[in-house]
């Protein structure tokens, strides 16, 4: 770890490298990292019992934060966090299908994000304030990205001091 930190400060662009917080099982595969908007939390995928499972950690302390509602819904994929990490969007397995869900860590609520029939979600990106979500969908063999409004479903997860702005859609 010390070697990594020493190497870090010397990059040509002034890059500083930080070690990722260790997973609970030491050296293991870690995939699909997602930072909270404030950079405090890191979600990533690790193997648990042979199934891909989301691991949510405090980036500095490495403390693992519990996600009890997501147990028994592996494999997980495509995690995405809001500003403080209150909301975690991800894909879980629901029978034969991948289901997009949103975990509200403040209330413990697990909210299914119901998509129009025939569209399989592949990747998610949750806006930091939780007002919108972008979903990569597989529709009739074609990959495309669609945006959805969450402003009626969630309380916003705003950065401290950020002023309120309208949700939904604004077009010229």
């Amino acid at each position: 770890m010390a070697l990594v930190l020493l190497l870090a400060g010397c990059g040509p662009l002034g890059l500083r490298r930080q070690p990722a917080p260790p997973g609970a099982l030491g050296a293991e595969n870690r995939e699909q990292p997602a930072l909270s908007g404030d950079g405090r939390l890191l979600a990533s995928l690790v193997e648990r019992g042979g199934r891909s499972t989301v691991l949510l950690q405090d980036r500095r302390s490495g403390q693992v934060l519990p996600l009890p509602h997501l147990r028994d819904h592996q494999p997980h994929s495509a995690p995405s966090l809001s500003w403080t990490g209150r909301y975690l969007a991800l894909l879980i397995q629901q029978g034969p299908h991948r289901q997009a869900v949103l975990q509200d860590r403040a209330s413990g609520r697990l909210l299914p994000l119901m998509l129009p029939a025939g569209r399989e979600p592949q990747r998610l990106s949750l806006a930091a304030d939780g007002r919108r979500i972008a979903i990569e969908l597989l529709d009739d063999g074609q990959r495309r990205v669609e945006l959805f409004d969450l402003s009626g479903l969630l309380e916003p997860d705003l950065a401290p001091g950020l002023r309120q702005s309208g949700g939904g859609e604004v077009l010229p």
Partner: peptide, 22 residues
């Protein structure tokens, strides 16, 4: 989920899309 049709129409005009970052 409530789609945002105006923006989605603009996105579809770009062709196939993947790996969104919002």
């Amino acid at each position: 989920l409530r789609p945002l049709p105006g923006l989605n129409q603009r996105l579809s005009q770009l062709g196939n899309g993947h790996d969104p970052a919002l």
